[in-house]
């Protein structure tokens, strides 16, 4: 039951995310069921010291924080000296953050979105489109969390080697290439289904879209695309209502 409890708590690891301790409190919250097993239980000094240590500042990708949770649970319950645990905690932040960002936010998430948009573009029904997105994304998401807890617990403070796993090391580049191909298919198909049967409107939307996209790429970093679209659509709506 302890691992089930820890797993569910990792899903809420960003529950009290803030600009001072970031994920810190969430790590303490997720580890708490494991720390209860320290000698003397929740009233012991060992438990309180571990809770204080584990609830301090921590920053990483939320899904890959599971690796840290598993490893820290093992370290705390094995009686590893506090200074070593603190050094280990600090050292894990950077790698777990950068690997997670590239693998999940820049990889799995856009890939799942784009595959679901292809399904939309070829005429799939609403339930199928939503299910395709959620199943692909969460197979990776939940799998990563479970793997993280397992590998962290198995390897303890030697978990850094697990980050050299081929999926984590080469996965982002593989997913990036696959996502690039999927994006090329998904964008025109999605535009076509939203526009409807008119060929001229479809061609116009794709050409104008390509021109604006080229402009956005050129001014990359200076203009946020979604804000530009908000302004453009608001202007279009105003013209439509006022003319």
């Amino acid at each position: 039951m302890t691992w089930v409890s820890i797993f569910i708590r990792t899903l809420a690891i960003q529950g009290s995310w803030n600009y001072e301790t970031l994920l810190g409190n969430g790590v303490g919250f997720a580890l708490e069921p494991a720390l209860r097993q320290l000698p003397g239980g929740v009233r012991s000094d060992a438990f309180k010291a571990a809770m204080a240590r584990e609830s301090a500042y921590f920053n990483a990708h939320p899904y890959l924080t599971s690796v840290a949770i598993g490893a820290l649970a093992k370290a705390e319950l094995s009686g590893v000296p506090p200074e070593r645990i603190e050094r280990f905690r600090t050292a894990l932040c950077g790698p777990l953050g950068s690997v997670g960002d590239r693998l999940v936010w820049a990889g799995l998430l856009p890939f799942s979105s784009l595959v679901a948009l292809i399904a939309f573009g070829v005429g799939a029904r609403p339930l199928a489109v939503v299910a395709i997105f959620l199943v692909i994304y969460n197979a990776g998401h939940l799998g990563l969390r479970v793997w993280g807890l397992r590998v962290g617990w198995t390897r303890g403070l030697a978990v850094a080697g697990a980050l050299a796993n081929p999926v984590l090391r080469n996965g982002p580049a593989w997913i990036a290439r696959a996502s690039a191909a999927v994006a090329g298919i998904a964008i025109p198909l999605t535009v076509a289904r939203v526009v409807g049967p008119s060929r001229a409107l479809l061609d116009g939307a794709l050409i104008v879209g390509a021109l604006i996209a080229g402009g956005l790429v050129r001014v990359h970093g200076r203009v946020e695309g979604w804000k530009l679209v908000l302004v453009l659509i608001a202007l279009f709506a105003l013209v439509s209502v006022a003319r």
């Binding site: 939307a205 879209g209 990359h220 279009f236």
Partner: peptide, 11 residues
């Protein structure tokens, strides 16, 4: 609307 959205997606 979708033309503008597709520009953001492509970029």
């Amino acid at each position: 609307t979708v033309g503008a959205a597709s520009a953001v997606a492509a970029a």
